[in-house]
Amino acid sequence: MRYFIRKLIVLGVSIFFITILTFLAFHILPGDPAQLILGTEASQEKLEALRIQLGTNRPLYVQYFSWISGFVRGDFGTSIKYSRPVSELLAGRLEVTVLLGLMVMAITLFFGVILGVFSAGKNGKLPDDVISAFTILGTSVPGFFMSILFMWIFGLILHLFAPGKYVDYHSDPAGFIRYMIFPALAIAIPQTATLVKYIRAAVIDELSTAYVRTAKGKGVPFTMILFGHVLKNAIVAIVPLIGMMIGEIFSGSIIIEQVFGIPGVGRLLVSSVLSRDFPLTQTLVVYVALLIVITNFIVDLVIQFLDPRIRLMEEQA
């Protein structure tokens, strides 16, 4: 319970800082949003009108509180470019991004764990070297370059999917998965590579412990030791990584959604930045950051519930 309250306080503090940092970024940094939107040759009246529309003529703290209270009530502001409430724009897109993220997570955890443990088991032998080479390559190939290669090879040459022709999951779930598997892979491969590296190190550490020696001594098959005994303990060491991965996956999907033309939150965000649609960008940034922080909070709690040692580890640190 104490752990829960402490985590809750940390969550509250980071939410406060996130909103204030984003707000300040959009209001303190040099440059008047109205000027930036309309360009340098805009007339004074037009600038004034837009300032009133954006609310930038009011004192900063008033702006901050009205923005936050709107946020709490679910009123995310209005987009300049689309002239529609942001919540309306978000409605369908969030599901797409979350589904993509879940697919990435599933692929990453599945392959990351299997390859990482396998690689540690073969420590120093050929399969380990092959997997190590893969991890270096996986972390070095940017997601968008990989996506372009996927589109070229699997889309245009092998015709496994039609690049740029997004399939809605309401109308055709199978087609949706077939289309999304490639963007998901493009985000997942770099993540898998990182995960493999960490799991491998954790498992190798764990292999030198006494209980592994005991298990070997009583004749447990090595594969059984790896996946039955060692893995459970090695997972503890990579828990902090999972929180980081959630953020990384979202970063990845911002770019990858652009490459594959997937109508998700990331694409909306990029287009809002490109069209200088400040209210939309500001809201989306906070929305995404909150989503990540809250997911992290939930993951922390769940993992702590599964393995109370993590709590002890953090309390010591």
């Binding site: 940094l29 970063s251 965000l269 940034v285 995404v288 950051a289 990540i292």
Partner: peptide, 18 residues
């Protein structure tokens, strides 16, 4: 707080206001 934003998000914010 800064590191709870994914890196690219920070970059997007800075680029959009400058």
């Amino acid at each position: 707080a800064v590191s709870s934003f994914p890196g690219i998000l920070i970059a997007l914010v800075i680029v959009s206001v400058m």
